[in-house]
């Protein structure tokens, strides 16, 4: 049991922000932190250190999200099930649209909704754009060339084997389409998660037919990520305390990652045994029972109506404007 006592939650040092009193520094920086971050630039210092630093940012980001979710605002008043359903409807609408103008207008609307939902608009824009859409933009740039997307060349660049090579209008449209669609889709998801407390989001998933067992596992995983993160940080710090100089280098850090995975799994396994006992001790027999019940109000029905109309306008407008 002693092995599980050591991790200290970072929350001990940093008290949770009180609703509405989030300091300005919380609204900036660290927002580029992305737990996937499949591609990114390397800076000095080992990546392990950066990931662990990032984890503190992750924690802040999550807490800040919970903070916004408790503010009074437009979306905060809506039933989470209605929000989840409308997210899916709007995402599908965004996915079928083929006109950049329609996508951009819809994106502008997300900014308005964010404003009325007590989400700081500057923060919202950064949070949405900093990672995926900008990355997407860079990645699709070469796709505007006639090599990849053949078509009508609007900016000729050079000729190759007698054929003109350049940026095609089809390529530009395609790049614009994907970047604006990605930005709109991410905005919709971020709006939902910023204005809905995590617990309610889980309850909404459950009441929309996601198996209870699956939702229970998601909730518990969420809870233990932060605990295990604390363990990893402790392991890293105790290792750094015993190593001179070497940890700066990525090679040593790589060794750390593979040996940590083993220790982490062992620790996790022991933890899960104990959690299992704690659940059994309070009468868990494999059947999940939820506390939260929702009441679908008239406001929710109205909201759903608005969403459906908005989705219809998006799709019809798109067809009117041509493809």
């Amino acid at each position: 049991m002693t092995t599980l006592d050591t991790p200290r939650p970072p929350a001990d040092e940093a008290p949770a922000p009180i609703a509405g009193k989030t300091p300005a520094w919380l609204l900036q920086g660290e927002m580029a932190m992305c737990p996937c971050g499949c591609i990114g630039k390397r800076k000095k210092g080992s990546f392990v250190e950066k990931t662990l630093d990032g984890s503190a940012g992750l924690l802040r980001q999550v807490m800040f999200g919970e903070d916004i979710a408790e503010r009074p605002g437009l979306l905060q008043r809506i039933d989470p099930r209605a929000k989840l359903l409308s997210l899916i409807i709007l995402l599908i609408a965004a996915a079928v649209v083929r006109n950049i103008v329609v996508l951009l207008v819809a994106y502008a609307f997300t900014l308005v909704v964010a404003y009325f939902s007590a989400v700081p608009v500057g923060f919202f824009i950064k949070r949405v754009w900093l990672f995926v859409p900008i990355f997407t933009g860079i990645v699709v740039l070469p796709a505007t060339l006639s090599f990849i997307t053949p078509g009508e060349i609007v900016i000729p660049l050079w000729t190759w084997q007698g054929q003109p090579v350049g940026i095609t209008s089809q390529g530009l449209t395609a790049a614009g389409l994907i970047v604006s669609r990605v930005a709109l889709s991410i905005s919709l998801v971020v709006l939902l998660t910023l204005t809905t407390p995590w617990v309610e989001l889980l309850a909404a998933l459950r009441s929309l037919g996601v198996p209870k067992m699956f939702v229970l596992i998601v909730g518990m995983a969420y809870r233990y990520i932060f605990l295990l993160l604390g363990s990893v940080t402790d392991m890293y710090e105790s290792r750094r305390a015993r190593t001179v100089g070497a940890v700066k280098h990525d090679k040593a850090a790589r060794e750390f990652v593979s040996s940590t995975a083993g220790a982490l799994l062992g620790k996790s396994h022991a933890l899960s045994e104990e959690v299992h006992q704690a659940m059994i001790a309070r009468g868990f027999r494999g059947d999940v029972k939820a506390l939260k019940t929702f009441a679908f109000t008239r406001a929710d029905a109205f909201y759903m109506l608005v969403v459906v109309i908005a989705a219809a306008v998006i799709v019809l407008g798109d067809q009117q404007l041509g493809r």
Binding site: P35, C36, G37, C38, G40, F47, V48, T51, G54, S55, L58, L216, I217, V218, G219, M220, A221, Y222, R223, Y224, I225, L227, L228, L229, V232, V257, A261, L264, L265, S268, H269, L271, S272, V275
Partner: peptide, 14 residues
Amino acid sequence: AVLAAVAFLIMMFN
């Protein structure tokens, strides 16, 4: 649940 948390952490280490 704990393994899902581990998978998340593994994906976090870039």
